[in-house]
Design a protein around this nucleic acid. Structure first.
Lengths: 153, 153
DNA sequence: CGGTAATGTCTTAGTAGCTAAGGAATCTAG
DNA sequence: CTAGATTCCTTAGCTACTAAGACATTACCG
C-alpha cells in the first residue's frame, strides 16, 4: 500500500536518469535559442562559478572535455556575445584568462530566469532539512561524476 | 556555525546547476566512447524507459527536440549497434516503431554499469526517507523541465 | 646562463550530426 | 474518391567538433 514511499536505489537511479535526459534536452534548447552550443553554456557556467578565481582557456578544455582548439571557438562566441572577455595573464603570456563581463550574470538570467523561477517554486515546497539533503546530494553526485570522468582518461 | 546545514534555494539551484553541467559532460563522454551522439543516448534511454509501450520515430523527435530527419540518423546508428530495431506498425504503415533489442539493457549496462555502481554507492548512504525525497525531486524536476520545454514551442 | 623540452593557445583540414526544405507513401475526412 | 494531413526519409548546407601541428612562451637542467 505504501510501496511508493520507499523507492529502491534502482528506482532512484532510474528517476535520476530520466531527469538528467530531460535537462540535457533543455540545455540543448537553451543553447539553440541563444545561438550557442551546449559546450558554450557549460564553459560560461564554469566561468561564472569560478567568480574571481582566474580561469584559463586550458581549464575550460579540461572541464568541458574538449580540445583547446574547440575552446578557441567557444571563447570567440562567448566573447562575441559580450558574455566573457579574454585577458592576457601577466604572469604567463602564453595563457589566456577568461573573465565574465559585468553584465554576464544579468544576461544569463534573461536566458535562464524563467526556468529558475519554476525550480525555485519547486524547491520552495521542501523543508530546510529536505533542501539540505538535496543540495548535499547535488554536490556529492557532481563529485562522483567528476571523479569518474577524471579517472577515465 | 551551522550555516551549511540550511542551504537557501539559490544555493540549491547553484549546486544543481554544477551537477547538471558535469552530468552533461559525462554523457558527452559516454557518447563519444561509444561512437554515438548524446541525442542517440537520450533516444535510447527513452526507448528503454518506454518498455513495451511502442515508441515511434516521431515520438523520439518530439522528446529529443530534434527534427525527424535527425532521428533517421539516430535510428540508423542505434540499429547498427544492435541496440534497437525498426518495426513496421501494422496499424499505420507510415509509422516506424522502435523497439529495444533483447540484449539492449545488457549492453547499456556495459556502458553505464561502472558509473551506476558509484551512484548506487552514493544512494546507499541515504535513509529510505531521504531516498524518497531525492526520487520525488527527480520526478518533479523532470516534470518541471519537460513542461517548460513543451511550453516553449 | 644557453639549449632543449614542455606548455598553452590558436590554426587548419576533415568529419559528424544537426536543420530546413521537400519528396514519397500512407492515412483521414468530406 | 479525392484533397489534405501525417509520418518518415532524403538532400544540401552549416556548425562545432577532433587531430595534428604551428607558434610563442616558459621551465628545466647541464
Amino acid at each position: 500500500m505504501e510501496a511508493e514511499r520507499h523507492p529502491t536505489v534502482p528506482d532512484a537511479i532510474g528517476a535520476m536518469d530520466r531527469m538528467i535526459a530531460t535537462m540535457i534536452v533543455g540545455q540543448q534548447e537553451f543553447a539553440r535559442r541563444f545561438g550557442l552550443s551546449v559546450t558554450d553554456l557549460v564553459c560560461f557556467a564554469y566561468v561564472l562559478e569560478a567568480g574571481n578565481t582566474p580561469v584559463t582557456a586550458g581549464d575550460l578544455a579540461t572541464r568541458a572535455h574538449v580540445t583547446t582548439g574547440a575552446i578557441t571557438g567557444v571563447l570567440n562566441r562567448l566573447e562575441g556575445r559580450g558574455f566573457v572577455a579574454r585577458k592576457p595573464d601577466p604572469a604567463d603570456r602564453r595563457r589566456v584568462l577568461v573573465v565574465a563581463q559585468p553584465t554576464a550574470v544579468e544576461q544569463a538570467m534573461t536566458l535562464y530566469g524563467p526556468f529558475y523561477e519554476r525550480l525555485a517554486e519547486l524547491f520552495g515546497g521542501y523543508t530546510p532539512d529536505e533542501l539540505a539533503v538535496l543540495t548535499d546530494w547535488f554536490t556529492r553526485a557532481g563529485d562522483v561524476a567528476r571523479t569518474f570522468l577524471e579517472e577515465s582518461r
